[in-house]
Design a protein around this nucleic acid. Sequence first.
RNA 1: GCGCCUGUAGCUCAGUGGAUAGAGCAUCGGCCUCCGAAGCCGAGGGUCGGAGGUUCGAAUCCUCUCAGGCGCACCA
Length: 557
Amino acid sequence: MKAGLKGIITASVQKAVQAGSVQIPDSGKLPDIIIDRSKKDEFGDFSTNIAMLLAPLTKQPPRRIAEAVAAAASSDDAVEKCEVAGPGFINIFLKKTYWPAALADILKKGADYGKGTSGRGRKVQVEFVSANPTGPLHIGHGRGAAVGDSLANVLAAAGYEVTREFYINDRGRQIDTLGRTAFLRYHELLGRKIDLPEDSYKGDYVKDVARDFILKNGDRYVDSALDDVQKIFSDFAKKELLDRIKKDLMDFRIEFDVWYSEISLYERSLVEKAIEELRQRGFVYEEEGALWLKTTALGDDKDRVLRKAGGDMTYFASDVAYHIEKIHRGFTTVVDVWGADHHGYEGRIRAVFRAMGLDDKMLRIIFIQLVALLRDGAPVPMGKREGEFVTLRQVMDEVGADACRFFFLMRKSDAQLDFDLELAKKQAPENPVYYVQYCHARIKSIFGFAKEKGVAFLEDFDEGILKRLVEKEELDIIKHMAMFEETVEKSALHMEPHRITFYLTELAGLFHPYYSKTRVITDDAEATLARLALCKSVGTVTANGLKLLGINAPDKM
RNA sequence: GCGCCUGUAGCUCAGUGGAUAGAGCAUCGGCCUCCGAAGCCGAGGGUCGGAGGUUCGAAUCCUCUCAGGCGCACCA
C-alpha cells in the first residue's frame, strides 16, 4: 500500500512541476521520496519531507513547494486532505475508505504480503559464517549465521536473486596444525605419551575426532612419522569437523546453496588465473623472492603478499581468486559477512574489485561485532586459544534456536550484543523473544475460540464489513501493517535485518493492548468478522516477518 | 602511532538532515468470574560523551577531542 502512497506523492510532484509552480533544474533528478508514519495524530496518517529535500534543488522556499505538492495531492481519490506544517512537511490525511482496502490487500496477499520487486531480480551473493573447519562454531559464528541468513531472506523478499554461500578454508597452515593435533591425540588415546605444542588446537573435540579415527582405522598409523601421515589426519579431521558445522547450522535452520572449497580454487587453477589476470592489469610484481599485489595503488595501506618467498600461496591469494570468481559468476552485489576482528582485511579485498576495474560499491561487507555472553548479568568467559569457548551448539541447546536467533537479530550487527542466557530462557515478561511469538499464538487461539462459538471466518467474506473498524487502535494497527513492505525494502537497502525485529515488536506492541481493551468475538456479527479479519492479518504479517528472521510462528506456546 | 566500530534514560538499545529525541528492561503503583496474565494500564526518569563548524534546521554531516572495543603478518 505504501507504494501507492509514494505514487501519489510522485505524481503530485510531477504535476506541480508541469504546472510550473516547482522548477526542477535540467539534471531533473528527483530525490528519493520518503514517507513515514506521522509522529502525531494531528500530523495526519503519513508525512513526507519531500518539499524540504527539493528546496535546495529548486532554490525555492520549502513551504511554497509543499503547498504546490499538497494541492496536487489533495485531488487524489485516496486523500482526504493534505496540510503543510512546520518548515515544509506535507501531512497526508487519507480517506477512511483507504484502510479497509489496505487491510483487504494484506488478506489477499497472505504469505506473499511484504514481498517487493525493488531488487528487480538482480543477483546477490551473501557469503557468511565461512568458519574454518578446525573446530566447532562458537557464539560469534552464530550471530553471523543468523544475520547472514536473515539478510538473505530479506533480500530475496525484496526481489533479489540470492545465493547463500559458505567458503571453506580447507587448506593452509591451520589445517596442517589440525592434522598434527589429531595425530597427537590419536597417540595419546592409544596410550602413548604426548607433548602438545603451544599452537595446537587444545579443545577436547580433537580427541573426539581421534577416537572416531581409531574406530575407522585402528592403530595402524601409530608408528608412522607425522610427515608421512599428516595429510591423512588433516583430511579426516577437517571433514569430520565440517560435518559437525553443517549439522550445527542445519539445527539452527540455516541452509547454504553453495559450499565453496578453497582447495577447489587450486584444482581448477583459478588462483593462477586470477594472478595472471591481475598481472595483465599491472598490479602484480615480484620482490625479495615473494609475489606481491600492488594494493597501495588501489586504496590499501600496504602491498600484500600473494606467494611467499618459500613458494606457498597465502590465504589472501585464495581469497583474491575467490572474489574474482564471484565477479565472473555475474553477481551484481557481493555481500561478505565477517567478524569485526577482520575489518583490517577490508582494504585489500576492496582493492581486488578496483584492480578488476569495478566499482567496489558492489562489495558490501557486514561486520559482526562481539557477542558478550552473560548469565544472570555476569559475563561468561570466552577464549578460543584455551579451547574453552562457548559454542553455538551449547547456547542453541540451552535456549532454543528461536530465542537464539531473535537475540542475535535484536541489535544492528555493528553494535556489540549482550546475550543473557538466563533471560533468553525465561518465560516471563522481561524476555523480549516471546512477545512477538505470543502475538501469533494468541491470534491462533482467538480463532480457536471463534470456532468453538460457531463463528465462521471465511476467506471470501464481504469486504464491506471492514469499515466497521473505526477505533483508533484498529486504524493504528492497519497503518503499521501498511508499512511492512516499506520496512522490508529499507531493511534490504540498508542490509539491516534487525529492522524486521523492531518492526514486529512494534506490531505486537500495538496488538496486545488492543486485544486487552477490545473484545473480538461479540454478539455483533459484522464487527466480529471485521475484527477477526484484523486479527488474521496481524497474524499473517507477524508470521511473514518471523519467517524473514528464521523464527517459528507458533500456534501454541 | 595509524585505521575501523561504538558512546542516546539507572541498564540494553531504536532513531536513511526535520516537528516537543523513542522502545524494552529495571523501579514504583494498579488489573485475571469474560476470546491465552508469555498479557494490560499508570508514574517517574535525558547536558544524545565533550568542543567547534556546515544550514532555515544536527543525535544524524565535517573537524578536533575524551572514553571503550577491535585491527594494523611472507597467520587464517
